[in-house]
Amino acid sequence: MDESPGPRRVVVNAIRRPPSEGARIVGLGAYRPARVVGNEEAATAADVDAQWIAQRVGVRERRYAEPADTVVSMAAEAGRAALKDAAADAAQVDTVILATCSMPSPMPNGAAQVAAALSCPAAGFDLNAACSGFNHGLAVADALVRAGTSGGVLVVAAERMTDWVAPHDRDTGPIFADGAAAALVLPSSEPGIFPVAWGSDGTKAGLIAIPAATGRMEIQGRQVFRWAANALAPVVDAACDLARITPRDLKAFVPHQANLRIIDAQAQHLGAPAIAVARDITGSGNTCAASVPLALDALRRSGEITSGDPVLLFGFGAGLTYAAQIVLCP
Score class of each variant (00 low, 15 high):
residue 275 I to E: 09
residue 218 E to T: 13
residue 279 R to K: 14
residue 281 I to S: 11
residue 277 V to H: 12
residue 231 A to V: 00
residue 263 I to S: 14
residue 204 K to F: 04
residue 208 I to E: 08
residue 225 F to M: 01
residue 265 A to C: 06
residue 208 I to H: 07
residue 227 W to S: 09
residue 252 A to C: 06
residue 243 A to F: 03
residue 247 P to R: 06
residue 276 A to M: 02
residue 211 P to A: 07
residue 209 A to Y: 04
residue 256 H to A: 12
residue 256 H to D: 06
residue 209 A to N: 13
residue 285 G to W: 02
residue 217 M to Y: 09
residue 251 K to N: 12
residue 236 V to P: 01
residue 261 R to G: 14
residue 239 A to R: 06
residue 266 Q to M: 11
residue 278 A to G: 10
residue 240 C to W: 05
residue 210 I to N: 14
residue 284 S to D: 03
residue 243 A to C: 03
residue 268 Q to K: 15
residue 207 L to C: 09
residue 220 Q to G: 04
residue 244 R to N: 11
residue 270 L to D: 12
residue 269 H to F: 07
residue 285 G to C: 02
residue 247 P to A: 09
residue 205 A to P: 07
residue 277 V to A: 08
residue 204 K to P: 05
residue 231 A to W: 01
residue 209 A to S: 14
residue 284 S to I: 00
residue 222 R to G: 15
residue 283 G to R: 10
residue 242 L to W: 02
residue 216 R to Q: 13
residue 260 L to A: 15
residue 246 T to R: 11
residue 219 I to Y: 09
residue 248 R to Q: 10
residue 213 A to K: 13
residue 222 R to S: 12
residue 205 A to R: 14
residue 263 I to H: 15
residue 234 P to G: 04
residue 224 V to R: 12
residue 281 I to A: 07
residue 230 N to E: 04
residue 215 G to A: 04
residue 233 A to F: 03
residue 282 T to R: 13
residue 224 V to K: 12
residue 257 Q to M: 03
residue 226 R to P: 02
residue 217 M to R: 02
residue 257 Q to D: 07
residue 209 A to I: 01
residue 285 G to E: 01
residue 235 V to W: 08
residue 239 A to H: 06
residue 251 K to R: 15
residue 270 L to F: 06
residue 221 G to D: 02
